[in-house]
Nucleic acid binder design. Structure first.
Lengths: 124, 124
DNA sequence: TTATTGTGTATATACAGTATATACAGTTTT
DNA sequence: AAAACTGTATATACTGTATATACACAATAA
């Protein structure tokens, strides 16, 4: 499944999993209707408890990205594409807002940030 | 002291305090040598426990922003300005990196982000 | 000097979030 | 029918965050 978790991170494991799967759904690497790895196999893969993978899947279900059928599996849900994009735009806006606030108190110019953006956009 | 905390936030109270005081130090609203409010008065102000304000001050001390003298008070330390700026630049860079990663999977263009930046920079 | 008030400190405690192992229940495949 | 797969529920432990309360030192007022 190609998920990488860090135990030393302050971000909970279930959230790391959630975010990475969400990215795969949004980028269409995981397609609508496709089955996710079972909580057991994923747990075994990542060497963590099934409860943690279950927790991650539960969160994804709450946000509408997947659907779980007991004893069958968890599948990518048919979530509205426009809503997803809107959510992502809002997340980005929130981050940019934080950036701007830091920049203000630290006298970091808009140009400095734009060149950061240019550089990071080029990479890879 | 003009600090605003939110109990409903998922960010710990002590960290909210820490960040806001840090901002005041960086923007020079709190000047080197100046005494911070006592943990007691701040706790009373914000209607929280002294342990929480103490925790916030301890974190600030660890990061070198303040110095605490037992039974006397906590004072703004003489931290190197260049180091502070470097830290803030790194924080911004990390945020922009997150933004770029989200933008990639969601097909959000660099121009969209730049105009967000323009808009948020203008405000206030 | 002595008492009071103002500092930060330490201890014991509670609660919530995160994580675990293990036992349970339904579905599919053999 | 048995075996192998799904997700579920329960009991438990650890850590982070927050609390109240008692303690110790410094500065100030009587």
């Amino acid at each position: 499944m190609n998920i990488i978790i860090s135990n030393s991170s302050n971000v909970p494991i279930y959230e790391q999993i959630k975010e990475q799967i969400k990215s795969k759904i949004i980028s269409n690497e995981l397609k609508v209707g496709e089955m996710l790895p079972s909580i057991r196999s994923l747990a075994k893969d990542l060497r963590i408890s099934v409860i943690t993978t279950k927790n991650a899947y539960e969160q994804l279900e709450k946000e509408g990205y997947v659907e779980t059928i007991p004893a069958k599996g968890t599948y990518v849900a048919n979530k509205n594409v426009e809503i997803i994009r809107e959510e992502q735009l809002q997340k980005v806006e929130q981050l940019i807002d934080t950036v701007v606030n830091i920049a203000r108190v630290s006298n970091i110019s808009k140009d400095e940030i734009k060149s950061m953006l240019d550089i990071l956009y080029e990479e890879e």
